[in-house]
Every structure is written in C-alpha cells, then in structure tokens.
Amino acid sequence: MLHVIFYEPRIPGNTGAAIRLSANTGAWLHLVDPLFDMEDSKLRRAGLDYHDLAHTLVHPTWTDCLKRIPGRIYAFTSHTTTLYTQVDWQDDDALLFGPEPTGLPEAVMDDPHVTARVRIPMVEGNRSLNLANSAAIGLYHAWHTLGFTGGH
C-alpha cells in the first residue's frame, strides 16, 4: 500500500481532496501537525462522504510520522532534476509533500529517512501546482507502476 504525507498542510480543501484521493486509491494519508481544525467545513466539503473510507492518520510530529512509514520516502519539490516518473516505485513507498505556501523545508528533505527528491515537470517560470493535484499526479503514477493493485 502506498502512502501520501502532507507535511504541515495549510489549506483544508486540499487535505479534503487528499482524503478523497486516499479513499479511492487505498493509499494511507499521513498529516503532520501543526494543521487546521479537522472539523473545518472546507475540509468536510472537499472530502465529501469519503472521510470514513479513507486511511488517514494525524501525527503530532515529523518523527512520529516516520515511525509509521514502512518503505522509502520521496520528497516532491521543484528543487531537483529527477522526475517522479524515474522512480522504480515499490509497495509501501511514500510520497511527501510540503505546505502550500512554502513547500518542504530543507531540514525535512535532508532527513536521512528521505530517499530522494523528485519533481513534477511544469512550464518554465511557473512556481507550483495545487497540492492535491500534485499528490494525485504522483500517487496515480506510482499506483499505475504497481499494476493498480487492490483496485478495480
């Protein structure tokens, strides 16, 4: 089973969309504090009625999150030349994404538990994609390379 990690997410609607993504792919969604009120109406609306179908864990710290990730961790960032499509994805791998306004801090990307940095290609001069969209792009590619195991 794949894992998606949102490190200190800031926008409830993006996390709600990721909850729906988790429910529809079977991936675990890990949320690292601090974050917003999990009862936020935007989070609920974006997640629709998928909250009970998703595998979501909230971790008080990055260290606590790491204890629950059994495989490799790939940090998604624009600060690398390696594409997410160049990874030989394996079951239990994790896709790590940073907060919407800033991206992942260097200290997190430099953590020895992080296997590598990868990026999603974009038109030159653009800053970033929406967080939930980035997670969907990366997760569906990884799941595809694993033969959509567990899906139908």
Score class of each variant (00 low, 15 high):
35 L>H: 11
55 H>G: 00
34 P>Q: 03
44 R>H: 02
57 L>S: 11
21 L>G: 03
40 D>E: 09
36 F>R: 06
41 S>K: 15
27 A>S: 05
24 N>V: 08
60 P>V: 09
27 A>E: 01
22 S>I: 04
28 W>N: 06
29 L>K: 14
61 T>V: 09
39 E>K: 15
68 R>Y: 14
65 C>K: 12
58 V>T: 12
63 T>H: 10
63 T>F: 09
63 T>V: 12
41 S>E: 13
55 H>S: 03
43 L>A: 05
60 P>T: 14
26 G>M: 07
23 A>L: 08
48 L>T: 10
60 P>Q: 13
25 T>D: 01
68 R>L: 07
34 P>L: 08
21 L>Y: 08
59 H>K: 10
33 D>C: 14
58 V>I: 08
66 L>T: 07
53 L>N: 05
41 S>P: 14
37 D>W: 02
61 T>M: 04
57 L>H: 13
46 A>S: 15
58 V>L: 02
53 L>C: 06
42 K>M: 14
39 E>A: 13
62 W>D: 05
42 K>C: 02
52 D>G: 05
36 F>V: 08
61 T>S: 14
36 F>S: 03
35 L>T: 15
45 R>Y: 15
39 E>S: 12
63 T>Y: 07
45 R>W: 12
52 D>Q: 06
35 L>K: 05
52 D>R: 06
55 H>D: 05
